[in-house]
Design a binder for these strands. Structure first.
Length: 278
DNA sequence: CTCACATGTTAAG
DNA sequence: TTAACCTGTGAGC
């Protein structure tokens, strides 16, 4: 489930399990073997996330840069009696006597310098999960973009950490059609969206899942079957094509934009018309 | 069981 | 535009 909240949660879990400790580092699968050998037995300082990028810092200003991509997983196991033999394609394993973490299927796993880490961070837009993030930096791009807001929200150079689920849900919560030109948004709208994202994504880190349905629209509040959709009723439109909108009951629509699926409600998220045209 | 598809991104063609 | 990453889930047989 790799949107920004997943990486921030991983950073916290990795730091809690291994921070300040000497760790064994290996690459059972082999593709990270040389770097793993250099790190093996070093002290792991901590782990940090910027958007969907994860960096694990080791002694000597050395960082492992990880990006999970679409199918990557990084499973942290703590308080184990014994560290088990790795199963399957484990690209990276970090372990102590009582904890281990296995990385599989990641698109990036590289040993990098502080400068290389900084360069990746510099390329990223503001991350709603970082306290020092500046939403005005994102607004500068959004307010000048000719592209649909649905495309701009997914651009990691504009905004770091938002993926397809947060995109779909944020636009629904703010009643904005995903194909509306980004530059037609008003500053106040963007401010509200940013504040909402900060809250939603913090919840995402805490719960390790994405929950976006407001209390007034929960199955209980709306008097509908709580098991209507396979996400347990926690999202409004993501992957709910054809199912009734939780607010207006009209079927959820979907389309492909820049190779990714869009989901929206045609009634709750009307197509934008400029004032000049009306 | 096999198959398609997915919360993502880069590099090759 | 396509392949790669090669996991994990759910649908269908």
């Amino acid at each position: 489930m790799p949107e920004g909240h997943t990486l921030h949660r991983l950073a916290l879990d990795l730091t809690a399990a291994f921070g300040g400790r000497q760790v064994a580092v290996g690459s059972p699968q082999g593709r990270f073997e040389e770097s793993a050998a250099l790190l093996n037995g070093s002290v792991l300082r901590d782990a940090q996330a910027w958007g969907k990028q994860l960096f694990i810092e080791f002694d000597g200003d050395r960082f492992v840069h990880i990006h999970l991509g679409l199918i990557g997983t990084f499973a942290v196991h703590t308080d184990v009696e014994e560290v088990p033999a790795p199963v399957g394609q484990v690209r990276l394993r970090v372990a102590t006597a009582t904890a281990y973490a296995d990385l599989r299927g990641a698109i990036i796993c590289d040993l990098v310098t502080a400068e290389q880490r900084d360069a990746v961070v510099a390329r990223s837009g503001p991350d709603p999960l970082r306290d020092d993030a500046d939403p005005d930096r994102a607004w500068a791009r959004i307010s000048r973009s000719q592209k649909p807001i649905g495309a701009v929200l997914m651009d990691q150079k504009v905004l770091a950490g938002v993926g397809n689920v947060y995109r779909a849900e944020l636009l629904f919560r703010h009643r904005i059609h995903p194909l509306r030109p980004a530059r037609t948004l008003r500053p106040k709208q963007w401010r509200a969206m940013w504040e909402d994202l900060v809250e939603l994504m913090r919840d995402g880190v805490r719960l390790n899942r994405i929950d976006t349905v407001r209390p007034e629209h929960t199955p209980e509040a709306m008097g509908r079957d709580p098991r209507v959709d396979d996400h347990g009723g926690e999202v409004y439109v993501y992957r709910r094509t054809g199912q009734p909108c939780h607010v207006c009951q009209r079927p959820v629509r979907s389309a492909v934009l820049e190779g990714r699926n869009l989901f929206w409600c045609a009634k709750c998220q009307p197509v934008f018309r400029s004032r000049a045209a009306t």
